[in-house]
Design a protein around this nucleic acid. Structure first.
Length: 651
RNA sequence: GCUGCCCUAGCUCAGUGGUAGAGCACCUCCUUGGUAAGGAGGAGGUCUUGGGUUCAAGCCCCAAGGGCAGCUCCA
């Protein structure tokens, strides 16, 4: 007999070799039906795994995340089985579960196209319908290798060879399909159900190494219930509807052009928002005693050698070439050796070091906080650019703080406070803070690292904010704190960062005279709150679905005339609002009011003022809130108070 | 950068070898309409670019550019 302890503390005695399914059945039929897997002493196992010794056991059901992962993992096997049937000779790599589903990497004779997915789905449905038993069996390493070789599964061979010597090598078999797998899995393919969908196919390198074989990665997702799949697909559709690239075009905010790939062109409305963001950050800087600087975009290559960017970041940098003087066409040429080569800056920090070094510095003036909205260029590889999220030309709410080591804690608190305040204003209430510590490869003494990590941690503790530690994830030049927000669609975005840097002050020979009269090296803090303004704008557009808060909206009010007779009054009202500092435009087109309301709403204009005979005569406006609907007729003055309040509240 | 897919009017998309289409947007006219689409007419395209195959190419082939997805990279 073995004694099994359940989560509620109850202990049950069972015959040795009984399974979690027996336990579930003993507790209740409903539990047995919902059971997917078991946790035996914390280890996720098959429901049928024999219980060989006393253990703590918990039944994992369909309702929980771990249960869903088991389903998806089994679904990945069914997909692999379908692929093997449809593409004889295919070989398999790995098929794990991921956040929203699962994938399987396969090597097939020809690349898969989207149409293949339908065929694979149909085959999967057949496999589900056949309700094949899924059986686990162990194999010795040599037998496992023999299996892989016999089946032409070269990648599986490699996986088996890489398994640690003590590993129990297990396989799962369902009908004509067998796969190397640690499990766990459901018991029968019939349990997989029909709430699954193959999403897309893409190339992926084996083990993420681009020098190795390229495989076809098939992505899919699965749920226990059809309505969960429907909800998932609805969220995906919603994300597509909010895609900032689409909204950017529809709301006339920005565009991209082949003449400057991955470099956004901000139209008047987009540029307005962009500048509003900068204005807002400038306001914070005023309170937090930052000084803004303006620095060049093109600098001598020697500077980049000194900073280390030339050695480590050159592939991502743009270099200048000069027009030929003696030819008609302006063919670029490389500078002659006598000329100075220049590079377009990918970061602002070296320019700030030059400002710092422009005269002797005293400890009395530290910390120095240099803020810079300078435009920077990074030659991101063509495949990684994406709308505003990853661009080649952008600016950041960038700043560098030069301070003494003992000032780190206070500065980090200041930065963190400002970042959290800033995110609240934009409606990002869910912020995750991650502290990254010293990596294997790093520069700087043990002493300064210990001091710096302690200062970062002390700052977070003092503030009483929750944070996670990512050991070894810091930059080689110093530890850092990253700030990750969750948007309205529950997606995470790393926006802010606060990185200590012991390297660059050394490289640039930065010094300050300490109170003792001795020359010391300052610590540099790289920090950003919104990060790239381009990327932040993209995130904000998707977070709000394009309906920006009043204080950021390029158009706050649209004044709609009922008929031609009221056009003049509508224009007057729009002009008066403009005079009062609001952003209003008039729509006096020869169209019906329903159409004007519809278009203003689609354009995400928060307030629509309707001007007809009644309003024109009484000097009032009828106010329509895009979300709340008709607010009724009121004096223009009263509407302005409403607007002013909304702007002040940043709502 | 790699792999796959895509590129036809401002936008979304039809168009499988025989001289280019729709809806919306745009312009003009009619309509003067009270809170999410009134009606009619018109204009707009070297079918991304360059080669090739063919009597004939938007359509087939090759290359380049741009985009999308994934991988990878990220001082």
């Amino acid at each position: 007999m073995v004694s099994i302890t359940l989560p509620d503390g109850a202990v049950r005695a069972l015959a040795r070799g009984a399974s979690g399914l027996d336990v579930a059945a003993a507790i209740g039929a409903r539990l047995a039906r919902d059971a997917v897997a078991v946790l035996i002493d914390g280890k996720l196992c098959d429901l049928r795994a024999p219980l060989e010794r006393d253990a703590a056991l918990r039944i994992v059901t369909r309702g929980e995340e771990a249960g869903l992962e088991v389903l998806r993992h089994s679904m990945a096997h069914a997909m692999a089985q379908a692929v093997m049937r449809l593409f004889p000779g295919a070989s398999l790599a790995i098929g794990p579960t991921i956040a929203d589903g699962f994938y399987y990497d396969v090597a097939v004779a020809r690349p898969l196209v989207p149409d293949d997915l339908g065929a694979i789905e149909r085959e999967m449905a057949e496999i589900v319908k056949a309700d094949l038993a899924i059986e686990r069996f162990p194999l010795a390493r040599a037998d496992a290798l023999a299996w892989a070789r016999a089946g032409g599964q070269g990648i599986k061979c490699e996986i088996i060879e890489d398994l640690p010597p003590e590993a129990q090598i297990s396989f799962y078999r369902q009908g004509d399909f067998t796969d190397l797998c640690a499990g766990p899995h459901v018991q029968r393919t019939g349990q997989l159900g029909s709430a699954f969908k193959l999403m897309k196919v893409a190339g992926a390198y084996w083990r993420g190494d681009e020098k190795r074989e390229q495989l076809q990665r098939i992505y899919g997702t699965a749920f226990f219930r059809a309505e969960d799949l429907a909800e998932h697909l609805r969220l995906l559709a919603e994300a597509e509807r909010r895609d900032h690239r689409r909204l950017g075009r529809e709301l006339d905010l920005f565009s991209f052009h082949p003449e400057a790939p991955a470099m956004p062109f901000f139209h008047p409305r987009g540029a307005f928002i962009y500048n509003q963001l900068i204005d807002y950050v400038r306001g914070l800087y005023k309170v937090r005693r930052y000084s803004e600087v303006v620095t060049p975009q093109i600098l001598d290559v020697g500077l980049w050698r000194q900073s280390g960017h030339y050695d480590n970041y050159r592939e991502n940098m743009f270099f200048t070439a000069f027009a030929s003087a003696d030819k008609d066409e302006a063919a670029p040429r490389a500078p002659a050796s006598s000329e100075r080569q220049s590079a377009v800056k990918p970061m602002n920090c070296p320019t700030h070091c030059l400002i710092y070094r422009s005269r002797k510095r005293s400890y009395r003036e530290l910390p120095l906080r240099f803020a810079d909205f300078g435009r920077i260029h990074r030659h991101e590889r063509s495949g990684v650019t994406a709308g505003l999220f990853r661009v080649r030309s952008f600016s950041q709410d960038d700043a560098h703080i030069f301070c003494m080591p003992e000032q780190i804690e206070a500065e980090v608190i200041g930065v963190t406070e400002m970042i959290l305040e800033c995110y609240r204003v934009f409606g990002f209430d869910d912020v995750r803070i991650v502290l990254s510590t010293r990596p294997d490869k790093s520069i700087g003494s043990d002493e300064i690292w210990a001091k710096a990590e302690a200062a970062l941690e002390a700052a977070l503790r003092r503030m009483g904010v929750a944070y996670q530690v990512a050991p070894g994830e810091g930059a080689f030049y110093g530890p850092k704190i990253d700030f990750v927000v969750k948007d309205a669609l529950k997606r995470e975005w790393q926006l802010g960062t606060c990185q200590l840097d012991f390297s660059m002050p050394e490289r640039f020979g930065l010094k300050y005279t300490a109170s003792s009269g001795v020359e010391e090296t300052p610590v540099m803090v790289h920090r950003a709150m919104l990060g790239s303004l381009e990327r932040f704008l993209g995130v904000l557009i998707e977070h709000t679905g394009g309906a920006l808060p009043l204080w950021l909206a390029p158009v706050q009010v649209r004044v709609l005339s009922i008929s031609g007779d009221h056009a003049r009054r509508a224009e007057e009202v729009a002009a008066a609002l403009g005079q009062a500092g609001f952003r209003a435009e008039a729509d006096v087109r020869n169209e019906k009011i329903g159409l004007k309301v519809r278009e203003a709403s689609l354009a995400k204009v928060r307030y629509q003022l309707i001007i007809g005979a009644r309003e024109a005569e009484r000097g009032t406006v009828s106010v329509r809130d895009r979300v709340a609907g008709d607010l009724g007729e009121m004096d223009l003055e009263r509407f302005q108070v409403l607007l002013q309040t909304g702007v002040a509240e940043k709502s």
